[in-house]
Amino acid sequence: MPDYKKRWIIAAAADLVLILAFAAIGRDAHARGDILGGVFLTAWPFLAGAAVGWLASRAWKDALALWPSGVSVWIGAVLVGMLLRAVTNQTVVLPFIIVATLALGLFLLGYRALTAFAARLSRNRLSRH
């Protein structure tokens, strides 16, 4: 499997897991029951939004890049996610929007930034030898 295919599969899986983790953490913080179904109920709008971000930016071309891939996935997850929550009568209040924006930004951009930093360190080490 070519390297770019591995990267987009890894990035898509990471986005999926991190959005599910965001939903699980939020549900746990609010002591909500129905763990598996509840996590999916909370996560699906953000997962759909992330998919829109993937498609809009064609993130598979450079899935681990902060820009445009990471930012598009993050913004898609938040904007489309909140819109879908609103039209399905799920909670959309300013404190939740702020928390979701910050948490999803940390999750979806954070691992991409760490990956870029690690790659840069690796290149610098190789260029010195």
Rank of each mutant, 00 (worst) to 15 (best):
M1Q: 15
M1R: 14
M1H: 11
M1P: 13
P2N: 12
K5M: 14
K6T: 09
R7N: 11
R7D: 15
W8N: 06
I9K: 09
A11H: 02
A11G: 02
A11D: 00
A12M: 08
A12V: 07
A14V: 06
A14M: 09
D15C: 01
L16G: 02
L16A: 02
V17R: 00
L18S: 00
L18A: 00
I19W: 02
I19R: 04
I19G: 02
L20V: 08
L20R: 07
F22L: 08
A23E: 05
A24F: 08
A24E: 05
I25K: 00
D28M: 14
A31L: 15
A31G: 15
A31H: 15
R32G: 11
G33Y: 10
D34E: 08
I35L: 11
L36H: 09
G37D: 07
G38K: 06
V39E: 00
V39W: 01
V39I: 09
F40N: 03
L41G: 09
L41W: 14
L41M: 14
L41T: 12
T42K: 05
T42G: 03
T42D: 03
A43D: 01
P45Y: 15
P45E: 10
P45A: 13
F46D: 02
L47W: 07
L47D: 04
L47H: 07
A48L: 14
A50R: 08
A50V: 13
A51W: 03
V52K: 09
V52F: 09
G53A: 01
W54S: 02
W54H: 02
L55H: 04
A56W: 15
R58N: 10
A59R: 04
A59K: 04
A59F: 04
W60E: 11
K61H: 09
A63K: 05
A65F: 05
L66Y: 01
W67F: 10
P68V: 04
P68Q: 03
S69E: 02
G70S: 00
V71I: 15
V71Q: 03
V73H: 00
V73P: 00
W74F: 01
G76R: 02
G76P: 01
A77H: 03
A77L: 05
V78L: 00
V80D: 04
G81M: 07
M82W: 06
M82D: 08
L84D: 06
R85G: 06
A86G: 11
T88P: 13
T88D: 10
T88G: 12
N89L: 13
N89G: 10
N89A: 13
Q90W: 06
T91D: 13
T91P: 10
T91K: 15
V92N: 04
V92H: 05
V93A: 14
V93I: 13
L94Y: 11
L94V: 14
L94R: 11
P95C: 06
V99K: 05
T101G: 13
T101C: 15
T101N: 10
L102Y: 02
A103G: 12
A103W: 12
L104S: 12
G105D: 00
L106R: 03
L106H: 04
L108M: 06
L108K: 04
L108C: 05
L109D: 04
L109A: 07
G110V: 07
R112E: 06
A113K: 03
L114V: 11
A116L: 12
A116C: 12
F117Q: 06
A119T: 05
R120S: 09
L121N: 07
L121Y: 06
S122M: 14
R123A: 13
R125T: 11
R125E: 13
L126W: 14
L126P: 03
R128S: 13
